[in-house]
């Protein structure tokens, strides 16, 4: 059975999809934080990107630096075909398990 994507992994992958050509570390960090509506640690995003790259779900290329970064390079990410397939799979699973239930759920008590 293929690995199931965790919710944070999905958030990072979807941030890369949304950011398109502008998907580098800091932009992904801010996009994930905005979507999850909480502060996110740079280390958490970095570790997730490393893991996703090891699993071949994302690919990366080095871009140029800017003065605000003291000239340090940016690493830009794109979601691979396998990454997109797993995202679609995760969404399908999510929709399947919620089908037939009215959201939000209410307590009977």
């Amino acid at each position: 059975m293929a690995d199931v994507l965790g919710s944070f992994e999905q958030a990072v992958l979807l941030a890369i999809v949304r950011l398109d050509d502008g998907a580098y570390g800091r932009a992904i960090l801010n996009e994930v934080a905005a979507r999850l509506e909480r502060d996110v640690a740079a280390g958490a995003v970095q570790a997730t990107l490393e893991r996703l790259e090891r699993k071949s779900l994302v690919r990366s290329t080095l871009g140029s630096g800017t003065p605000i970064r003291d000239g340090r390079a940016r690493r830009f990410y794109t979601v691979s075909a396998e990454g997109l397939r797993q995202l679609n799979e995760a969404r399908k699973t999510h929709e399947t398990i919620w089908r037939g239930l009215r959201r939000p759920l209410k307590s009977r008590a």
Partner: peptide, 8 residues
């Protein structure tokens, strides 16, 4: 890249 991201 990560040092640059955090600095930015």
């Amino acid at each position: 890249t990560v040092c640059g991201d955090v600095l930015e």
